[in-house]
Amino acid sequence: MSEGAKPYGLLAEFDTPAALMHAAEKVRDAGYRQWDVFTPYPVHGMDKAMGLKNSRVGWFSFLGGSTGFAVGNLMIWFMNRFDYPIPVGGKPLFSPFSAFPVAYELTILLGAFGALLGMLILNRLPRLHHPLLKHGRFKLATHDKFFLVIETADAKYQPEQTRQLLEAAGSARLEWVED
């Protein structure tokens, strides 16, 4: 830890998903808020261990999908009935049935964009610069190691106590991350 600059956080390394999960439960119960765990794949049960709520991505997708369905129907109504009616074989100028396939495809198209963009917005991505990405050891988070980080910005953060908590949780390795 260099003098003067406040570190970004305390990085604790674990070897197995089970060890990380128990540590996450302890950190959750200690009442920390600005902390996170980093794993090479999504560990099932970790949301509960961290006390995370259900993701809100669904709302973005729902918004996209309903927009798609409405836009599809309105577009076809406007083009084939309102702006330039094309009478074919005495069939209705607008019918929800013949408009359905296109509106359905647009529902899926915009719903899918909603899901992807919702994920990126909620995750504040893309973010190409992050203190953790500069840390050498952290590269193993996409390989085979499991990390837990408590940020110094957390209200409950105390250099000694936080360190003791993570040591008691069984971390194999504790390091400071520069901001």
Binding site: F38, T39, P42, M46, N54, R56, L125
Partner: peptide, 15 residues
């Protein structure tokens, strides 16, 4: 800028 954060995985898996 993917880090493998579980807060990210949670949204990612839902998406």
């Amino acid at each position: 800028g993917w880090t493998g954060s579980n807060r990210h995985w949670s949204n990612y898996e839902k998406a």
